[in-house]
Design a binder for these strands. Structure first.
Length: 706
RNA sequence: GCCAGUUUAGCUCAGUGGUAGAGCAACGGUUUUGUAAACCGUCGGUCGCCGGUUCGAGCCCGGCAACUGGCUCCA
């Protein structure tokens, strides 16, 4: 199991670094060899960071020449020379001044002095804490700023290969320059490296995109449907049905109620929820416009011109109002407000000042003109905007609001397999794992603070129940909390409710501790409305991703004004738990395909049973048809192959299609009232009485036998 | 969105500037079969799209799109 990565961007301590395994040392050393080779070819290269990573290493380099895979051969040739030279990795501890001087003269991450500074190394030196010693590692002519550790000699790198080139921002920050990241891998010897590449080949065969296509589970149709919008073929539809059945049974037993909501909603919904104002807008598809004036261009132009005029007036008024309110006495500033909410607030304030008669006459007439024109604008039909929903919660909140609620209604658990649409960046799309249309195993639990721990635990129990069914044993719960420095200001990412953040985070942390669930705390990654727990899993081929989620929301119910009447006859806002134990169909099925390598257990298998006849003799086919009909009458996905092919051919096709159970029927079976059972991957299990076989199939499906 | 690579028949892939190919699948026949491929034939392509270079472009050049590997982001 891959170790969970260090979640923070903090520097590794020197102690941490000493814990590097031998393989990591080999790879880290190989990164230095890579830099050495690149410098021999391009002496002007500027290096940033070159660490070992999970399956190898990389080195980030800034270089006018674009390194392409065609360059790998000559780079590898230079690397081989360096390894053959078997140079010692020599550690040198230097005074800070020396390091600064060498960075300035371009000596760091270089083969010799250069006429220009080693700019990234200079930056790195300047950021090394005062108390920490500074060291170099030298192999041959190459000297690099490096805390180590390394292998003894370059010759200790038994086998290596450059694998790919990608771009990466310096220090992972979008605002920093983009560097070329050269990836490679290294091993103690050739045999181990070959084993690794063989493993990669095997992994490719389990890729859900490949198996999904081969088995006919889903199709992508970027030209017609659009990128990231999978089409579920009948076989995928069958898996979806089974997952929904499982979720519905489980949720019904746990006291959930099912609801259905539309796929879109008016702009107001998302202005209220905060999705549009708070940094979520770019994840939503752009709005659909409904406009009465659509076919009246001249009216429309008139409105547009008036609209521009109003906007101009408004910005003038707001600029003045901003000065008045923020410079004025009494600290009425509300720096937490953004966008439309801030405008609304400023307008209210300036009207108050006017009503008190304290407004400068010039500004007052500007305000009056704005109000008149704004009024005129509102007299005209306005376009309305609809958005595809990116989340189900706002709709569920409106269901909560649709009826008066009492404390007796709580906890209220609303469940829906809701379809959401998210405008993921084009580079993010990835098979079924990252898509733009997604079906969430969603539910929202509205509860009181007292009920929170029990509800939260029940959700966690549900996760564990599902994981057992699917045989998922590698997972970790990531508890994401907020960053107090990002509650306000331009880079605000979280709703500005410091008290509530603290309270709910403590509540969740305590619940996690009490339940003894294995978790890691991840700072700064909460949802904008509250802390969350993501369940991270690893597919069998080592792909890591968030499968399920469990989030606390203390903010959005308040924004929607959701209340229930409590025992003491006061109105209170409920807490809301968002939870999606099966995540989305898209990601979950993508995961399951890789998890099972397409060899689904009987209950999930798209084609559960295929009946194969030996020959197409009429009596035999009739007997086989009876079996298929009997299975289908019990909702078993059974298909038939009654053609004239040889039985070996029929079996081969069924095996390749990963049909779970094959029932082979020849004259011998028919006479004895038997069927011959063959299970995918297990070979022939021999002939058994028909009734017995059917009963066992039904039982295995019912139990969801693994 | 950014960097790099890729795109030829439904699928897997050949094809180095001179008449677009193979296997599987599909379709039509022949074959009557006992646990991973019986045989013969037929169909199938504006070589991702648009433009350029050339007497001539699947191949060389440019733009766009999609996909793949990463980066940033996330269920």
């Amino acid at each position: 199991m891959p170790e969970p990565e260090k979640q923070s961007n903090e520097r590794k301590t020197l102690d941490d670094r000493q814990k590097m395994t031998e393989l990591e040392r080999i790879r880290h050393s190989c990164a230095h060899v890579l830099a050495t080779a690149i410098l021999r070819l391009w002496p002007e290269a500027q290096f940033a960071a070159g660490p070992p990573v999970e399956n190898g290493f990389y080195y980030d380099v800034d270089l006018p020449h674009r390194i392409a895979p065609e360059d790998f051969e000559k780079i590898e040739a230079e690397m081989k020379k360096e390894i053959k030279a078997n140079n010692v990795f020599e550690k040198m501890v230097v005074p800070r001044e020396q390091a600064l001087k060498d960075a300035q003269s371009g000596r760091l991450a270089a083969l010799g002095e250069r006429g220009f500074p080693s700019k990234f190394k200079l930056d790195i030196v300047q950021n090394i804490p005062e108390h920490e010693p500074i060291s170099y590692y030298k192999n041959g002519d190459f000297i690099d700023l490096c805390a180590g550790p390394h292998v003894m000699r370059t010759g200790n790198i038994g086998a290596f290969k450059l694998t790919s080139v990608a771009s990466a921002y310096y220090k992972g920050d979008e605002k920093n320059p983009q560097l070329q990241r050269i990836y490679g891998t290294a091993f103690k010897n050739k045999t181990e490296m070959e084993a690794y590449f063989n493993m990669l080949e095997e992994a490719k065969k389990r890729d859900h995109r490949k198996i999904g296509q081969e088995m006919g589970i889903f199709a992508m149709d970027p030209d017609y449907t659009g990128p990231g919008l999978p089409l579920w073929l009948p076989k995928g539809g069958a898996i979806i049905e089974e997952l929904e059945k499982l979720a519905k049974e489980t949720e019904f037993a746990a006291g959930y109620q099912r609801v259905r909501t539309p796929h879109l909603a008016k702009e107001k919904m998302y202005l209220t929820s905060g999705h549009l104002p708070i940094l979520y807008a770019e994840s939503m598809f752009p709005p659909m416009e409904l406009d009465e004036l659509k076919n009246k261009p001249e009216k429309r132009d008139e409105r547009d011109q008036l609209g521009e005029k109003v906007e101009k007036l408004k910005s003038l008024v707001l600029a003045e109002a901003d000065n008045l309110v923020t410079e004025g006495e009494g600290s009425t500033q509300r720096t937490d407000l953004v966008g439309q909410e801030r405008e609304k607030f400023l307008l209210e304030k300036i009207r108050e000042i006017r009503d008190e008669g304290n407004l400068d006459p010039g500004l007052a007439s500007l305000l009056a003109e704005f109000e008149t024109e704004h009024g005129n604008l509102l007299m005209m039909p306005q376009p309305t905007y609809y958005y595809l929903k990116a989340m189900n919660c706002p709709h569920h909140h409106r269901i909560f609001a649709a009826e008066p609620r009492s404390y007796r209604d709580l906890p209220l658990r609303l469940a829906e397999y809701g379809t959401c649409y998210r405008y993921e960046q084009s580079g993010e799309l990835f098979g079924l794992m990252r898509v733009r249309s997604l079906n969430m195993n969603d539910a929202h639990i509205y509860c009181t603070e007292e009920q929170f721990a029990a509800e939260f635990n029940a959700v966690n129990e549900m996760y564990l129940k599902y994981f057992k069914i699917f045989g998922i044993d590698k997972y970790i719960m990531r508890f994401s909390t907020h960053d107090p420095s990002r509650l306000t200001g331009d880079n605000a990412k979280f709703v500005n409710e410091p008290e509530l953040w603290k309270k709910t985070e403590d509540l969740v942390r305590q619940t996690l501790i009490d339940s003894k669930i294995n978790y890691v705390e991840v700072p700064n990654e909460a949802a904008f409305y509250g802390p969350k727990i993501d369940v991270q899993v690893w597919s069998v081929i080592g792909r890591e991703f968030t499968l399920a989620t469990n989030q606390v929301d203390f903010a959005v119910p308040k924004r929607f004004g959701l209340v229930y009447r409590d025992r003491d006859n006061t109105e209170k806002t409920p807490l809301c738990i968002h939870r999606a134990p099966l995540g989305t169909h898209e990601r979950f099925i993508g995961f399951l395909i890789e998890h099972y390598a397409g060899n689904f257990p009987l209950w999930l298998a798209p084609e559960q049973v295929r009946v194969l006849t030996i020959g197409d003799d009429e009596a035999l086919v009739n007997y086989a048809k009876l079996i298929v009909n009997e299975l289908r009458a019990s909702m078993v996905r059974a298909e038939s192959d009654f053609g004239t092919d040889k039985i070996n051919g029929k079996i081969q096709r069924a095996e390749q299609a990963k049909v779970h159970t094959m029932l082979v029927i020849g004259p011998r079976d028919m006479e004895a009232g038997n069927v011959s059972v063959r299970v995918h991957g297990k070979g022939s299990l021999g002939a058994k009485p028909k009734a017995e076989v059917i009963t066992d199939i039904l039982q295995a499906i019912k139990e969801r036998r693994p």
